[in-house]
Amino acid sequence: MKAPLHVEPWNPADAADRAAVAAMVLRYHQQTESEKGSSAIELPDRYRAEAEDPVATFAGSTVLLAKELDAPLGMLVLTPTAPGWCEVKRLWVETEARGRGAAKHVLMEAAHRAAADGSGLRLSVWEWRTTAIALYERLGFSRVPSWDSRAGLVCLERPADG
């Protein structure tokens, strides 16, 4: 029997958490670049910098880790943006952990934390990530006009009371 999943904020002072976040951010960007038809090895500097120094990159944000026992299985970055909104960034679940609820767990914890501050959640996702879009819609996110000029992005929001 598998241990239950739980979600907790990462501890950037903890070397294991820091290494896990750095590795997951790197895999997130490598997969995204590969899906876009770009080199997964030669990431743009801004993406490589996130993996090299997640503490500095995510300062001012909350990084949530989905864990089983003490092993990180997934992550999400929650960043305050416009008044009344927090944005979900870098949602990633390790390949071997997919289908076990880690994405749902970190999203629901993000929604809880945002709502506690009176904020809703917003996110953007590439249109080809249909499984992710379906999950977001099941969790109360609705498509909204894009706030991002990049072609192929779907923008979604979940109000604080959603």
Rank of each mutant, 00 (worst) to 15 (best):
M1D: 07
A3V: 05
P4R: 10
P4T: 00
H6R: 13
V7M: 13
E8A: 15
E8M: 11
A15R: 10
A15Y: 00
A16I: 09
A16Y: 01
A16N: 05
A19P: 08
A19Q: 13
A19T: 14
V21S: 12
L26Q: 14
L26G: 04
R27F: 11
Q30L: 04
T32G: 14
E33N: 15
E33H: 15
E33G: 03
E35G: 04
S38F: 15
S39Q: 13
S39H: 08
A40H: 05
L43R: 09
P44R: 09
P44M: 13
P44Q: 09
D45P: 09
R46F: 11
R48S: 13
A49Q: 11
A49M: 11
E50A: 09
A51L: 13
A51N: 12
A51K: 11
P54I: 02
V55N: 02
V55D: 01
A56E: 05
A56K: 08
A56W: 08
G60T: 00
G60W: 02
S61D: 13
K67F: 01
K67S: 13
K67V: 14
E68D: 04
E68H: 05
E68A: 09
P72R: 07
L73V: 08
M75I: 01
L76R: 02
V77T: 06
V77S: 04
L78G: 00
P80C: 02
T81W: 00
T81V: 10
A82F: 13
A82H: 08
G84I: 00
C86S: 13
C86D: 04
E87H: 02
K89T: 05
L91A: 08
W92C: 10
W92E: 10
W92F: 15
E94C: 00
T95M: 01
A97S: 11
R100I: 10
A102L: 03
V106A: 13
L107K: 09
A110N: 07
R113V: 06
A114F: 12
A114K: 06
A114P: 10
A115K: 10
A116W: 03
D117L: 14
S119R: 15
G120D: 10
L121D: 00
R122A: 04
S124I: 07
W128C: 11
R129W: 03
A132L: 01
L135C: 15
R138F: 10
L139Q: 07
S142N: 12
R143W: 03
R143L: 00
V144S: 04
W147H: 06
S149E: 14
R150I: 09
R150F: 14
C155M: 03
E157L: 03
P159A: 14
